[in-house]
């Protein structure tokens, strides 16, 4: 295992820190989009969106 970890692109500490910052921002952006799409669906289709026969 230890030998395998040496292969490929090795990120520096700074790159790892930056990646974490980006990952957190992407996470928040995705969560915001999910909330937004839910809200817009509700606004456009109204509360009866789920109330329909199968």
């Amino acid at each position: 295992m230890a030998e395998e970890e040496e292969k490929g692109i090795k990120l520096t500490d700074e790159q790892l820190k930056s990646r974490r910052s980006r990952s957190v921002a992407i996470g928040w952006a995705l969560a915001f989009l999910v909330g937004l799409i839910f809200l817009v669906t509700y606004v456009k289709l109204g509360p009866g969106v789920m109330n329909r026969p199968l």
Partner: peptide, 22 residues
Amino acid sequence: RQDMMNEDSVVWTGGMGTASDY
């Protein structure tokens, strides 16, 4: 952009930007 360190590991110069840089 990759600088070969040795045949197994590579250093990548991208990926430096934080959320505030973006």
